[in-house]
Simulated scan of single mutants.
Amino acid sequence: MDVQKMLEVRKMLEEKIAKLQEELKLYTSLLELLDKAIGERSFSTAAQVAKPEAVEEVRGKGGEVYATAEVYPNYLYVKFREPVRLDGLFKRFFLDKFLQKYREEDAREARQGTLKQEEVLRYELEGGEAEATAIKIYNYRTEDRRREILRVLRWTLEKVYSG
């Protein structure tokens, strides 16, 4: 590809990016307007309306509370007692090994067509880049899996907080 052609492609990409940025601004403004309208018509936010089915404490062997887990139909919301560093056991074992095993199982089922892609286990961390204050684990799917996740989380937090 000659330089002139590459410059034309570059210009086309820059124009596309500018157009997408404008579109993003529009959508962001629309979301802000919707949020404002919802706020004016409602006494509570959507997050406040959703009530957990159960709230469980993740306790260590000595009875100390490591985290609180709110159980919703499609996800767990776990708030840690204190921030968990993301450069140690929590990330290496709980996220990268344990939860990844479930993600891989679900992805395999999705490839085989027995599970929808949006039903694959995933998680989101809250907090900064170096530590997490909470985690949302979506699509735990079964009660056995939910119990196993909380059991392994308890073990992991016990090691993290004692270590």
Rank of each mutant, 00 (worst) to 15 (best):
V152P: 02
K51C: 07
Q21H: 07
F94K: 01
T68N: 14
R59F: 05
D96W: 15
E8Y: 01
R92K: 14
R59Y: 02
E57M: 08
Y77A: 09
Y77N: 11
D2A: 09
I137Q: 00
M12W: 12
Y140G: 00
K61L: 14
S29H: 12
L34W: 14
R103C: 04
S162E: 10
G128I: 03
V65Y: 10
V120I: 09
R59S: 13
D2E: 09
E129K: 12
T45F: 02
F43L: 05
Y72K: 14
N139D: 02
E56W: 13
N139G: 02
V9S: 05
R108A: 14
R81F: 08
Q112D: 14
K79G: 05
A69G: 14
K159D: 04
V78A: 08
R151M: 05
G63Q: 13
E158A: 10
Y123W: 07
K5W: 03
E124C: 04
Y102C: 01
I137S: 01
G60A: 15
Q100M: 09
Y102N: 00
R10P: 00
A130E: 14
M1Q: 11
V152T: 04
I137V: 15
E126G: 09
K36C: 06
M1D: 10
S29Q: 13
R145S: 00
R108V: 12
Y161C: 05
